[in-house]
């Protein structure tokens, strides 16, 4: 099967967030960037598992400048076959999805994976936009994916307070959530072979983003915690009713 995994670059979960002078961009000094965890742990590893069982290839696709190559090499070290980097700065979900879909339209993939969302802008929009431009079914927040035959899959999808089980034929777009696969750490052999795997650079299509960032803000500082005597839960109950007004 021909599988494609869309990967994104995000600040590490534990990164301390700050913005540049006019608050339009993330201050990148001192921040470690990683592959978006949903893309790496769930989408990429699941695609590799399918390839190990059914054969074929796993390609990764990324929109970003060459400084992001280490993230792409990591995906190759985990086990992807080859990679494509669309050589332009990622500025919005609509721009990233447009660039990716325009590339995918030139190739034939059986399953197109994304993570359920990125941990920076938390938009969860790219999968739906890809599916729309490619005119394919889209299954979001998938926690299980079983390939039944080379052109049929059974997917479990998380929803409010439950799950749906869905049958779908390839090709389709799927966004991966926890449960789909287990994180893999690249081994030394993977890291060595990743260096010689193809990382193809793709010229972007002309496009202007449909949104623009006006400003970022840090949330107001939280008041210091008020400690309650563990022997006096009546006081906590009173505060929750009279002060916080939540019960």
């Amino acid at each position: 099967m021909k599988l494609l995994v869309c990967i994104s670059k995000t600040p590490d979960t534990t990164a301390k967030i700050a913005f540049n002078g006019d608050n339009t961009k993330l201050e990148t000094a001192g921040i470690t960037f990683i592959m978006n965890p949903y893309d790496e742990w769930y989408a990429l590893v699941k695609a590799i598992e399918i390839q190990e069982k059914w054969g074929g290839s796993v390609s990764v696709l990324h929109v970003g400048p060459s400084e992001n190559d280490p993230i792409i090499r990591k995906a190759l070290a985990i086990g992807a076959t080859d990679a494509y980097r669309i050589d332009t700065e990622a500025v919005s979900a609509d721009q990233v999805a447009f660039q990716m879909a325009s590339f995918i339209q030139q190739h034939a993939f059986d399953i197109i994976f994304t993570g359920k969302e990125t941990i920076d802008y938390n938009g969860a929009e790219v999968g739906g936009r890809l599916a729309a431009q490619l005119n394919l079914p889209f299954i979001s927040f998938a926690s299980h994916l079983d390939i039944v035959t080379e052109n049929e899959a059974i997917v479990k999808r998380d929803m409010e307070g439950g799950t749906e089980t869905i049958q779908v034929n390839t090709p389709f777009v799927i966004s991966a959530a926890k449960g789909m696969a287990e994180q893999r750490i690249p081994n030394m052999k993977g890291i060595m072979t990743a260096k010689s795997k193809p990382l193809n650079v793709v010229t972007p299509q002309p496009y202007s983003s449909k949104i623009s960032i006006v400003s970022h803000e840090l949330p107001p500082a939280k008041k210091a915690v008020q400690y309650i005597d563990p022997e006096n839960m009546a006081e906590l109950a009173r505060l929750l009713r009279e002060e916080a007004k939540v019960i």
Binding site: D94, A97, A124, E125, A131, R157, I211
Partner: peptide
């Protein structure tokens, strides 16, 4: 911004040639 809403927003916005913000 529910599980279905999150699935729909990108798809609808593309079909309407619209910019979108989720959540």
């Amino acid at each position: 911004h529910s599980s279905n809403g999150k699935s729909l927003i990108g798809n609808i916005a593309y079909l309407l040639d619209a910019g979108s913000v989720s959540a």
